[in-house]
Nucleic acid binder design. Structure first.
Lengths: 227, 227
DNA sequence: TTCATTGTTCGACGTTAGACGAACCATTAC
DNA sequence: GTAATGGTTCGTCTAACGTCGAACAATGAA
């Protein structure tokens, strides 16, 4: 049975903690530079550079050059799917790593995932919307109910514009720190951008952390409780 | 971001050729002994024994003791899914090993993937349905057209029951041996079960191979050509 | 221009882990 | 009983690979 896809080669690339850390980070952040990835994985940039070139050669990641920066991202959805599958098995078999890093708590509380809100607050919002039937799972995926449209309107979010965007309107995105869902899609992006607009929070530079002000935290929780 | 499922640990276990060979063999044959696996992977039995105990400890495989024999098998469907996913990516990125083994052809022609038909015949069916607009990709994923409903009805498959199942009705699943799609979801499962019902094929014991009779092969091809 | 920053290449070092021989235990066959 | 087979454990060897320091190229900012 020495035939078929060479899974060992691909798996070996994922089976090294620095590379796995980098890929996991790329699941959340769409594009990161080599130095950022090096910091995340806790290795020097030379080391990360070597890892990235291996991942590139195997077409697991792709790169966009912008001036002196090179933004790395996952090659395609299949790779993301593979990582999800891997996380699923790792989770089921109880293979967790419970090491926390100093920045963890903030990251855990609220962070940006692509362009929407993830972490505790993101999950809280999503679950509140679902509990009050403003969002509902249908056969076609997640749907916003008429009452939900109204709630977003009252929150000052124009769902019409979000509807017109070409990408998916609203979908549930698995939150790795919480292992529950949060709101993604253009609707999720609109919600986060409204939060910024109201001055409730701002994104930390060169990080995925979203730092809520104390007022912002209170107001955001009040808003989602009003669902 | 050193938190969450430890994917590197699992991936590292799959990223070694002897272990990968063993797991791949277990995808096809449900239960094999340590010595058989050692022969397949081309290592001594002590070596395979060490590998198997690592895989056992990580709950990627399970074992059934029978006298002095120990029959190893994949732990669950998630592990099989992970391996398929891995094969898919390995194929897409052109990571192949081109040594053939005698039993491959049957597996390539028709096999069970979860509960639906994969391999040449699975891909053939899927592509024929798509070509005749019985299946169509929509924004929401794969959809069965009214003409498609009719075709399945004529084939003796009750799409209503399949619709009512909680899981997804029809979706495209990447076929690792063909590198193209085949039909999955409750509709795919219904098609395969109809094939068994008509006596066109039967699943080989302790393997993923689906063995078509010569009549069954002809009739199945005729059926999908009638789309 | 000068300087800081991003990212790569090269070489050397050290750890890891896979490989096998040999010895061992357990089960079944004769 | 003895012999044969399936499987594991132990110790040792070796090759592979991740790691970093240092040096270098390219880009952009002051």
């Amino acid at each position: 049975m020495k035939d078929g896809p060479n899974i060992a080669r691909i798996a070996a690339l994922l089976g090294e903690s620095a590379r796995a850390d980098a890929l996991t980070a790329l699941m959340t952040d769409r594009a990161l530079t080599a130095t950022e990835l090096a910091a995340i994985a806790g290795v020097t940039k030379q080391t990360m550079s070597a890892h990235l070139s291996k991942l590139l050669q195997a077409s697991l990641i792709a790169v966009d050059q912008q001036g002196r920066h090179r933004y790395f991202r996952l090659a395609d959805e299949d790779v993301a799917g593979l990582l999800e599958s891997l996380m699923g098995v790792a989770f089921r078999t109880g293979s967790l790593r419970l090491l926390s890093s100093p920045r963890e708590p903030a990251l855990r509380k609220a962070r940006v995932c692509y362009d929407h809100l993830a972490g505790e607050l993101g999950v809280l919002a999503y679950e509140s919307l679902v509990r009050h039937n403003l969002l509902a799972m249908s056969q076609q995926g997640l749907r916003l109910s008429p009452a939900g449209e109204e709630w977003f309107r009252r929150a000052g979010i124009d769902t019409e514009t979000a509807h017109r965007e070409r990408r998916s309107f609203c979908r549930a995105c698995m939150d790795w720190s919480e292992r529950r869902y949060h709101l993604a899609g253009s609707l999720g992006a609109a919600l986060l951008s409204r939060v910024h607009e109201l001055g409730w929070a701002r994104k930390e530079k060169a990080s995925r952390v979203i730092r809520f002000t104390s007022v912002g935290d209170r107001e955001f929780r009040r808003l989602i409780a009003s669902a």
